[in-house]
């Protein structure tokens, strides 16, 4: 077991426990809506945690994939006469395809070059969404119909809480399984030394591509869920700031920690809601908190705190 991580069962158990307890403690529709947003963001963050934390590849444009998922879900019913669910599936497929196509040349890049290339990709997606007004509705955003399943409307904060909550647990389960597999080990290996990984037979380019596509699928799924739940999307889902928020969730929670990605998502989703009471000071406080967290809990919340507990016990 790696330092700062917990066993698969402990992590899934914790998640399930939180999932079950939140509606008991905070049953108001407002709180359930915020919690739903946490689960959605956590899904996207989990994919990014695999990409950044496990494989060590940065993406500063991941909201682009989230945007593709969200907008496909919104546009399918409007322009193609599809139902929202199949539109979402199509969106996830589109995101995976884009990741597959641009992944190889992009992932040849290292460090800051990779950062700027992914940044550019995200910004281009965002720009297309903002600019193609007749198709996307432009900056004003676009409305979605209700989802119908078996002839019944899928609606209400409680139901969406459970749908997205189940989604995040599944997403975490898959991610944990991947970590503990040949592919997962290869990804962690190339994070440390691409050269050493390649000479033991790891096809580095292929593995980076695989994890990039997985991360894109997670983000597109999160985007689709967001569109269905919110029934309204604006280009902000694909924006640069959203990309940065996603990376911050992963880093603040603790790079390479599955639980960390969820904790980071919770923090960065709840915090802005809580900060609205500061009105004018909202942004300043958010920026300050990000800097403080990164300076004082550099390993991230989950590994940082776990490390502290372990040290205290052995002291």
């Amino acid at each position: 077991m790696r330092p700062g991580t917990f066993s698969k069962l402990a992590i899934l158990g914790t998640l399930l426990l939180v999932l079950a307890v939140v509606p008991l403690v905070l049953p108001s529709p407002f709180h359930l809506r915020v919690a739903t947003l946490v689960w959605i963001n956590a899904t996207a963050a989990l994919g990014l945690a695999l990409l950044i934390g496990l494989a060590g590849q940065v993406s500063l444009g991941h909201a682009g994939f989230m945007g593709i998922g969200a907008y496909a879900t919104a546009l399918g019913p409007k322009h193609l006469g599809l139902d929202p669910l199949s539109s979402m599936a199509l969106g996830i497929f589109a995101a995976a395809l884009l990741a597959l196509l641009v992944g190889r040349p992009i992932l040849r890049l290292k460090g800051h070059y990779l950062a700027v290339a992914t940044l550019g990709l995200g910004i281009l997606v965002h720009l297309v969404i903002v600019s193609e007004v007749p198709v996307t509705g432009g900056p004003d955003g676009i409305q979605l119909p209700h989802v119908e399943l078996l002839g019944r409307r899928v609606t209400g904060p409680e139901l969406w809480y459970w749908i997205t909550g189940t989604g995040v647990v599944l997403a975490a389960w898959l991610a944990l399984n991947l970590e503990d597999s040949s592919t997962g080990r290869a990804l962690r290996a190339l994070h440390d030394s691409e050269i050493a990984a390649s000479v033991v037979g790891v096809d580095v380019a292929r593995h980076k591509l695989v994890v990039f596509v997985i991360a894109a699928v997670y983000a597109a799924l999160a985007g689709g869920l967001f569109a269905l739940f919110n029934r309204f999307v604006t280009p902000d889902v694909a924006g640069f700031l959203r990309s940065i928020e996603l990376v911050t969730m992963v880093v603040i929670g603790g790079m390479g920690s599955i639980l960390g990605a969820v904790v980071g998502a919770a923090l960065l989703t709840v915090l802005p809601q809580a900060l609205t009471v500061f009105h004018e000071y909202e942004h300043a406080v958010l920026g300050l908190l990000i800097v403080l967290f990164m300076v004082f809990l550099r390993q991230g919340i989950v590994p940082g705190l776990a490390g502290r507990v372990v040290r205290r016990r052995s002291a």
């Binding site: 790696r2 597999s181 040949s182 592919t183 080990r185 290869a186 962690r188 290996a189 994070h191 440390d192 030394s193 050269i195 050493a196 990984a197 033991v200 037979g201 790891v202 390479g256």
Partner: peptide
């Protein structure tokens, strides 16, 4: 030395098994 420093000694060797594993 090109070691996978984020891994345990055992995991380092397990990566060496990459080609023997069916993925």
């Amino acid at each position: 030395l090109e070691i996978f420093f984020r891994m345990s000694a055992l995991e380092n060797v397990m990566v060496g098994r990459h080609l023997k594993e069916r993925r």
